[in-house]
Amino acid sequence: MNLKELYQEIILEHGKNPRNLRKTEGFNKDAKGNNPLCGDNVHVYLKLNGQKIVEDASFQGSGCAISMASASIMTDLIKGKNEHEAKEIVEDFLGMIKENPELKSKYLNEDEKTKLMCLSGVKQYPMRVKCATLSWHTMVSAFDEKTEEVKTEN
């Protein structure tokens, strides 16, 4: 276990100053998620344009540095992607957080991969995986227009 791997500078920075921590004006997809055991909660907003491309993504909520950084990085890199691309990225991310050593999606550029890999330290802390994944599951729920709240248990 290595705390420095978990709390990399970029995570601390995103945790402290999360990007897109707001409510997108004119959003057309949204979903809520919460970790009942932790009390973490997140509300993800997406604005898709006529070509079904994410024009803006944002979130509101509260949680630990890991969950805030994860939501911050996610909402940043999902902009400009369509639903199919976004969902593949989610799958790739979830696979990496749980077991895969690297990200494979062709929809991620090197810079985006580097940023996301900063969250890979979480896999050594099983209790914290749900902190990193909550906003991602919630985004999928927003795409799918599910009305019930996402509850993440690892």
């Binding site: 973490d40 949680g63 630990c64 914290r128 902190c131």
Partner: peptide, 9 residues
């Protein structure tokens, strides 16, 4: 610092 981060550290 969020309490979960405190507990992990």
């Amino acid at each position: 610092v969020h309490p979960h981060d405190i507990a992990t550290i």
